[in-house]
Design a protein around this nucleic acid. Structure first.
Length: 109
DNA sequence: ACCTTGACTAGAT
DNA sequence: AATCTAGCCAAGG
């Protein structure tokens, strides 16, 4: 058919799948960008997860703060407001740190 | 269409 | 343990 689309199974875009996965992380737990990507079916798109979270509006209900890097650290410069903001939210959920690093017991996957 | 830039990462030094 | 490097995906210039 002349009007066939180039894309077919693209019912849900990657952004939505990532939102979906992030929304599943329970309070008191964290997951890495890479793990979220993998759960969303995009095993090599860790960076994309960060890009997507960056776009979230300030009033978003998504628990974006539960996503940290593979070393279990917050992926913001330690001096930035963003770092403090995320850390406060994590502490508020009972997450414990060993210095910069989040305790292993809080890993979801 | 090409190049650069990231809330990234696994692997090599 | 601290750095570097090479892949990766999508967006923007």
């Amino acid at each position: 058919m002349r009007f066939a689309r180039t894309s077919l199974p693209k019912s849900m875009n990657n952004q939505q799948r990532i939102w979906q996965v992030v929304s599943q992380i329970p309070a008191g737990y964290v997951a890495s960008y890479g793990q979220v990507a993998a759960q969303a079916g995009l095993p090599k798109a860790a960076r994309l997860v960060g890009n997507v979270l960056r776009q979230l509006p300030d009033d978003s209900k998504l628990p974006w703060h539960r996503v940290v890097n593979a070393q279990r650290k917050i992926s913001f410069p330690q001096l930035s407001d963003a770092y403090q903001h995320q850390k406060q939210r994590l502490l508020a959920e009972g997450i414990s740190f060993n210095g910069e690093v989040i305790a292993k017991q809080h890993c979801y996957w």
